[in-house]
Computed example of a mutant assay.
Amino acid sequence: MRRGHRPSAAPQGRIRLWGRHAVTAALANPERRPAKLWATREAAHALALAPSLLPVAYADVTDLARLVPADAPHQGLVLDTDALPDRWLDELFEAAEAGGERRPIVVLDQVTDPHNVGAILRSAAAFDAVGLVTQDRHAPPESGALARAASGALEAVPWVRVVNLARALEEMAAAGYWRVGLAGQAGATLGEAMVPGRLAIVLGAEGEGLRQNVAGHCDTLARLPISARVESLNVSNAAAIALYAAATRG
């Protein structure tokens, strides 16, 4: 690798992942098509990869740092890979039919920060959500920063991107989902708004909240019962609380 050269991104059509959890989860995902792995010898040895499965370029820590954004914690592993294939709403509904009736769908309305979306994916995996749904144009793309924040959950939680979020919520209603939108001004608390069975948790962007049209396609709006000393929670924290409430509802 030429000294002083820092590639800004993976080659066109691919994404660059880094960090132990993100890279190992991607390599274990049969839907991924990895292209090239850079690794320190120590990190590569810990992976125990068959050499024929993937080209591995050995590098020292300093060289790996040139492949990723400044101060990104690569932990000795950097991977170029194709993006995940597109997923569809019907796949989430089929997963529910197969025994996941109580597993919620998480819907994000214009949440664009990759660290927030990654953290929400991690919570979705922790509480066994059936999938994540976002609008295609107002959500972050797959990226190393998002995958790092998700700590492997990008590979575990199906992520469906739709053109029209309101229409997707209509399809969820037709599939039997009760759609609860989180809104700080709502009269009911989240616990009061929960129902048994299929549930979609809808969260809006920090600050702006749910757009009017999206809120209008929810069956009910609910708030988290937080103290008046705090105006609101980060959207990833709110998602984790809502997912816990969904997992422990009666």
Results as ranks from 00 to 15, higher is better:
45 H>N: 09
242 A>C: 15
174 A>W: 09
186 A>E: 02
229 R>H: 13
60 D>A: 05
231 E>Y: 00
47 L>Y: 08
25 A>T: 13
187 G>F: 03
215 A>S: 06
151 S>F: 04
94 E>F: 13
41 R>D: 12
165 L>F: 07
186 A>F: 01
42 E>T: 12
240 A>C: 07
118 G>P: 14
148 R>Y: 15
211 R>W: 05
47 L>W: 04
62 T>I: 00
190 L>G: 02
233 L>I: 05
150 A>W: 09
249 R>P: 02
77 L>T: 05
101 E>K: 09
181 G>M: 05
170 E>T: 15
162 V>I: 11
175 A>F: 03
170 E>L: 11
217 H>C: 09
244 Y>M: 10
151 S>L: 09
145 A>F: 00
150 A>M: 09
139 A>P: 03
122 R>S: 12
159 W>H: 15
122 R>D: 11
245 A>W: 09
245 A>I: 08
98 A>P: 04
94 E>M: 14
61 V>Q: 14
96 A>E: 09
3 R>K: 11
204 G>Q: 03
161 R>L: 11
240 A>T: 10
143 S>I: 02
125 A>G: 12
248 T>G: 05
233 L>M: 13
92 L>T: 07
242 A>Q: 04
237 N>P: 00
180 V>E: 12
32 R>H: 10
31 E>M: 10
236 S>C: 13
152 G>H: 10
144 G>S: 01
171 E>T: 07
66 R>T: 12
170 E>N: 15
7 P>M: 02
230 V>A: 13
124 A>F: 01
56 V>Y: 02
4 G>T: 07
191 G>V: 09
237 N>K: 00
206 E>C: 04
22 A>S: 15
65 A>V: 00
74 H>L: 08
160 V>C: 07
74 H>V: 03
94 E>Q: 15
213 N>D: 08
55 P>V: 06
110 Q>H: 14
209 G>S: 04
85 P>G: 00
119 A>E: 07
165 L>W: 07
101 E>F: 08
100 G>K: 12
224 L>V: 13
72 A>G: 06
79 L>N: 01
27 L>D: 05
183 A>V: 00
234 N>W: 14
202 V>A: 06
112 T>E: 13
142 E>I: 04
201 I>W: 04
90 D>W: 10
142 E>P: 11
12 Q>C: 08
70 A>S: 10
140 P>L: 06
103 R>H: 13
90 D>G: 15
181 G>L: 08
133 V>S: 05
31 E>S: 15
160 V>A: 06
65 A>M: 05
234 N>L: 10
236 S>P: 15
101 E>M: 11
